[in-house]
Design a protein around this nucleic acid. Structure first.
Lengths: 226, 226, 226, 226
DNA sequence: AATGAATGAGTGTTCATTCAT
DNA sequence: AATGAATGAACACTCATTCAT
């Protein structure tokens, strides 16, 4: 979100020579601007539909720089995608669900997932694009798989605690639960355009969003309750 | 599936000269072959990624014919998409859920939806592609909205009967229920490539599919149960 | 040289429908124009230095047609090169050296080779370009190797007859002889620009050309004479 | 081969501070490394096909240095080419053919030329590249023309002595002789890739090379013999 | 002396679409 | 009804060169 350069600039370090700072900053800042512009463009048009020229222009960078930093359009997409996954996984970890009572923890996760999709719509389109390409790029990333494991075990822990406390029923597979939590939010957003036509309802209206979130929490709680 | 041409010809004009009949049939057959080839190509590569040349080749038709029958690539996509929606809606109507007891009816709908996605994977990619384009093409189709209304009211009827019989709790919105039924299947399939990496599990293995379907039925039944 | 279309047109066939002829002609003519333009451009600038745009423009063809007929720039180069080799080999066969006395035959071959290089300077540059690319394209052509075999055996025949008649010395390897006949002409032309500087002489002046040809004939005759 | 810097430093300013000396040496060394890398890259890919980035990388130098020392890619090529010509001309002078008997001298020159091409294959490709560019760069060098004059007069001297001694026939133009000596070696090497295909023989095999050299000596001796 | 970041003009290639028959 | 040839606008990617230190 915030460019490292801005952060650095804000922090100050008046003793450092300006020369050094600006040089380092420019390179890193350019890279970041490219990534940000690429995320938008890929999200809006998919991998195939995205235009390298547009990315360069929006990033206020030279097209050549994209190839310098990311080798190819696909290399850029891969980095954008990986970052997107790492970002949501990191945010999930920051929820500290392990310290909450199981029911609250689960509700909080459903709510977080919903909000994340709502505020980061690019994530959804990026994932869709990647699936159109049969996860060709994600396959190369070990980091994403490793980080995802933590999420599953976190949910597994919540379920276990719930069962131990007698509030959750036994036998709920954490992976299936995870998938369902994601599904009921993801589907709603990814299909919001066709959904608006099919269901003849503005799915993105404020009340519609609130109603759906409540429905989703209800769905998950009922699913696991003893 | 069944070529409309054959049906028409059989039903139709027995007096027409064989030559004419064959020509008509050929024309209709060409149109159908194009649609079938297009569905595949659009499903595999999205609207933007699909190649008109490839569609023509796979349909064993001249490229010019595509423009003759469908005006443009987007016109072709629109027809393919509309057909896809009409097909699933028609299949749903054929389920005759109104005559079943509410619980069985609901389970049958969940199972049907799951099976339909499984056996018609193009449907999912077409819908995704359309959403990437903000439902630009579907907007033009009144038929799809009208047909979808029937589905919602059918589910609404099941819920009502369930509530009346005391097996379902009151206050469940049929649209939300519909969305959730779709979501828990759709998400699983559309993200099967990234999902296989994230969850480190072969989501398309036979047991995995069976397990998921059971989980989904459980989810829906618990959601509506009194 | 002569475009097939022209030949056809000259030949006449007044009975054929113009429609058919023009259609066939257009496609073939375009292909030929592209090849002719490509030969020039590749000869002037090498494979790497040649510009597809320029070829298209000079051929009065659309760039897309180049890719339609030849798949790629390299595919086009390959065809041009193969044609060049087939052309010179065919011309050599047309010399009918088998019926001449050995000495005359050899002189005629030296003279022909010289004249061919002089009048088809593209041949030399094409061959140079191909060698810069380590014969990558020619390797794919079986036809060229087969056709060249005829040349070698033709020269071998001349040598044999000369030896039998006592005018040539025995033991002259036809391949070496062939190489030398080519070398003393090829080198002169391929290095005419640097040569003009090194030897401070206009190598392409009329007298210079005549003088060199005589020298070459002398060289070859002395080389084989008994 | 030998770094001019070392020579200069040794000859030059013994009083200079080591720091300065090292710097000068480094600078000169960088220049030399660039030239060496450039010779390779130009030889392998021609002027047009050579990449400045590659040259910089292989020379372990910054790209900017190339422009600092040689102004442009073409400036670099020009220097490389000039050096190549000066190198072969210098080597020829070192042969001291004036003191040998004419026949031995001539044989030695043919052998030297052959060996030089064999051991310095870059020379051939550089010359070819320069001729593709119509000797644009060599034209600017007076030194090369001057040095080449010496070679021609050396050969002229050999011929004269041979005629005087009655072993060579009169009337052999030293320039033509020179060209032929070069041609019969140059052509063989420059066309070794296409030649291998055309003549269906490994032209670079040890025996093939020996055979060709003998043939070339025979050719030249027969050409000039009385 | 030396460097890493940046650039603009091109380069081969692709694609949906139309023309002529 | 059907076809093969042709097109122009665009696209991902490249490269020699310069800028700012």
């Amino acid at each position: 979100m915030s460019t490292p350069s801005e952060t650095e600039a804000a922090a100050g370090e008046p003793a450092a020579s300006p020369k050094t700072r600006i040089r380092i900053r420019d390179a890193e800042a350019t890279r970041t601007r490219i990534l940000e512009a690429a995320k938008r463009e890929f999200a809006r048009n998919g991998l195939g539909g995205a235009r390298v020229d547009v990315i360069a222009e929006k990033a206020k960078a030279n097209k050549r720089m994209i190839y310098h930093y990311f080798e190819s359009k696909e290399g850029l997409f891969q980095t954008v995608l990986e970052n997107a996954y790492l970002d949501i996984r990191a945010a999930e970890q920051r929820l500290n669900l392990d310290n909450l009572d199981p029911r609250t923890a689960l509700e909080r996760l459903v709510r977080f997932t919903w909000d994340y999709y709502l505020k980061n719509p690019e994530f959804i389109t990026l994932v869709n694009s990647e699936n159109l390409h049969r996860a060709k790029h994600l396959k190369k990333s070990e980091l994403v798989a490793a980080t995802s494991r933590k999420l599953v075990s976190m949910v597994g822990g919540i379920v276990e605690r719930g069962v131990a406390q007698g509030v959750f029923r036994p036998g709920v597979d954490p992976v299936q639960l995870n998938i369902t939590i994601a599904a009921i939010g993801f589907y709603y957003f990814t299909n919001r355009f066709t959904g608006t036509i099919i269901y003849e309802r503005d799915l993105m209206a404020k009340e519609a969003l609130e109603e759906r979130l409540s429905f989703n929490i209800e769905t998950i709680i009922r699913l696991v309750s003893a």
